[in-house]
Amino acid sequence: MTEAATPPSLDTRTEAPARNQWWDVWDQFKTHKGAVMGACFFIFIVLAVYVGPWIWSIDPTYIDIRARNQGSSFAHPFGTDQLGRDMLARMMAGGQTSISVGLTAMGLALFLGTLVGVLAGYFKRIDGLLMRTTDLFLALPLLPLLLVMVMLFRQPLSASFGPETGIFILIVIAIGITSWMPTARIVRGDVLALKEREFVLAARSIGTRPGRMILRHVLPNVMSPIMVSATLGIATAIITESALSFLGLGFPPDFPTWGRLLFDATDFMQQHPQRVMWPGLAISLTVLAVNYMGDGLRDALDPRIRGL
């Protein structure tokens, strides 16, 4: 230390490494009870669907026709379907697909939406073009478009990546590029407002380049709407995938997803209502957990709320 005037005790304090900001985020996150519960449940679901199959090692595609349409028992806690396949094993396998589709499609939609929103809001020249494109996408009827996309691209993608990966890519892209528009609009609006704030002007007076301006000043401040879009996005993606599978246009029939399980179970809803209940419950609870988690995360990421 060069300053002789500064007392040495002060120096030792400042020389200690600064507390990592993410600890503050975690501290705030912990105070949001719903968010903690949501996070716990989400982790539980993820562990259940990815680690569960190692413990519950029944093959989800194994057909035991004599044990079909059974209720809950020790051999089959969630019962069996009309072909005698174990529902618990199928729920786990289905969850893997549903959750990975949800997360990846959300990531893609969020990336596209944020990119378009920030570019449109920040660079006035391309604003009109980008927002009219967004309007165009919003005007497209979602479900027919998805159906056409699945029809057109299922074969070539299945051929080049194998049936499962091909469909996975197709579904993720289909959901991703049809659900980024609300994010883009919200982000653009926020960026437009942010751009007029004095700290952006201050950064301009420093000579901050546009790229860094966006990363340092704009993006962190549009975090809240992005987080909200993200949590809602996971939910919508899981539901859209379910809807596609439900319509029989998602993954192949023998490939379980939560939506496909729901679809298969509707025929037997009268006789075996529990078969609709389990996948339905899994979808709803996962979506709910993710929403709570996003809520808490949004609060935790805002230093103004965090300080309280």
């Binding site: 600064a18 900001q21 704030r197 004095e198 700290f199 002007l201 201050a202 950064a203 007076s205 420093i206 000579g207 901050t208 380049r209 860094r212 340092r216 000043h217 962190p220 401040n221 975090m223 805002d302 230093p303 103004r304």
Partner: peptide, 27 residues
């Protein structure tokens, strides 16, 4: 350089004091 009128609005609420003062040095 410039000192702004509203000290609340001219500082990015998502940056620490360290990061704010350091920004010109980064650039």
């Amino acid at each position: 350089q410039m000192v702004f009128q509203d000290p609340q609005a001219s500082l990015n609420p998502r940056m620490t004091v360290q990061a704010i003062i350091q920004e010109p040095l980064d650039e």
